[in-house]
C-alpha cells in the first residue's frame, strides 16, 4: 500500500531520517495501519461537515498590548548551541 519511494517522500516531508535497514519494516507497519484506517471509506458521509475542533471557541483574542514574556537568556538557556543573542544552527548549504 505504501512503497519505498512513497515512504522516503513522506519521511522527507516530516524531516525524519530513515536508514536503509528501517525501510522495509516501516513500510509494512504503515501499510497495515493505513489498511485499518481505510475503514472510514465505508461510512456514508454525504452532507456531513468536518469537525476540526469540538466546542465553541470564538472571540478569544486578547488586547494587543505589550506585556512581559520570557527573558532572552531564559529562552536561550535550554538550546544546544547559542551564539550572541540567538540560536546557533549549521549552515543550510553545509560547510
Amino acid at each position: 500500500m505504501i512503497d519505498r519511494d512513497e515512504l522516503l517522500h513522506v519521511a522527507r516531508l516530516a524531516r525524519l531520517a530513515l536508514h536503509e535497514d528501517e525501510l522495509e519494516t516501516t513500510a509494512a507497519e504503515l501499510s497495515s495501519i493505513l489498511g485499518h484506517v481505510a475503514a472510514i471509506d465505508q461510512l456514508d458521509l454525504d452532507g456531513v461537515e468536518p469537525t476540526a475542533h469540538i466546542g465553541d471557541v470564538s472571540d478569544s483574542l486578547r488586547a494587543d498590548q505589550p506585556r512581559p514574556s520570557l527573558a532572552r537568556e531564559v529562552a536561550l538557556a535550554p538550546a544546544p548551541a547559542v551564539r550572541d543573542d540567538g540560536f546557533l544552527v549549521p549552515s543550510p548549504q553545509g560547510e
Binding site: 535550554p78 538550546a79 544546544p80 540560536f87 549549521p90 543550510p92 548549504q93 560547510e95
Partner: peptide
C-alpha cells in the same frame, strides 16, 4: 534548535 537533543551535522537539514 531550541531545546533537547541535537545530533551534530554539517548541514542544517
Amino acid at each position: 534548535v531550541r531545546y533537547g537533543l541535537r545530533v551534530e551535522q554539517a548541514h542544517l537539514d
